[in-house]
Amino acid sequence: MRLVIRLFFKVLRRVLMPFMLIYAAVSKPKPISRSADAQAKVDEACKQLELYQFNTCPFCIKVKKEVHRLALPVAMANVQRDPKARQALEAGGGRVKVPCLKITHDDGKVEWMYESNDINQYLHQRFAA
């Protein structure tokens, strides 16, 4: 039964994939603008962030829209296409679930944030003007 359910969702995802990609491209919000100095500080802070995602996940699209709106150069790791990214997510975060934001703090401590609403709230609190 599990195999049938997985197969159903895999086929459904394949059918919906083009529509999800079109939606993601068309619905991007306008990015905020910052001064050059402020953007440089944001760029430096974003070097400590990495978003584990895949392109057709609706929750990942939601987070990527917020990343685009806040004009954040966050590194993206596609766990469907990159087996190393998938292994890193499982080893570091403990489970393969997307979206997941890897936050490396200044003291070297690594935090793994999984929920799209939590990720968006964190990004908004840290980087919104």
Rank of each mutant, 00 (worst) to 15 (best):
Y122L: 01
K97D: 08
V110Q: 00
S27I: 02
W112F: 14
L7A: 13
N55C: 06
L7C: 04
P58R: 10
V11G: 02
P58N: 02
M1Q: 11
V79I: 12
Q125T: 03
E90T: 11
D43Q: 06
Q87W: 01
L70G: 02
A85N: 05
M20Y: 15
T56W: 11
N120G: 04
K30F: 14
P83M: 05
F54M: 08
W112P: 00
A77I: 02
H68L: 03
V63S: 07
A40E: 05
A45G: 13
K28E: 12
M17N: 09
A88P: 08
I103S: 01
Q53A: 11
R86P: 07
Q87E: 09
G108A: 10
A71M: 04
P29V: 10
Q53C: 15
H124Y: 06
N78I: 05
A38P: 00
K47M: 10
N78G: 00
I5D: 04
F8T: 00
L7Y: 12
M17C: 08
G108K: 02
G93D: 10
M113A: 02
K10E: 02
R86C: 14
M76F: 10
P58Y: 06
N120C: 12
W112D: 11
V110Y: 09
S27K: 04
K65D: 09
S27W: 03
R6Y: 15
K41Q: 07
E115V: 02
N78A: 09
K28N: 08
C60V: 00
V79M: 03
H68V: 02
R34V: 06
K47Y: 10
Q53V: 03
I5Y: 14
A75K: 14
Q48V: 00
M1N: 09
R126S: 11
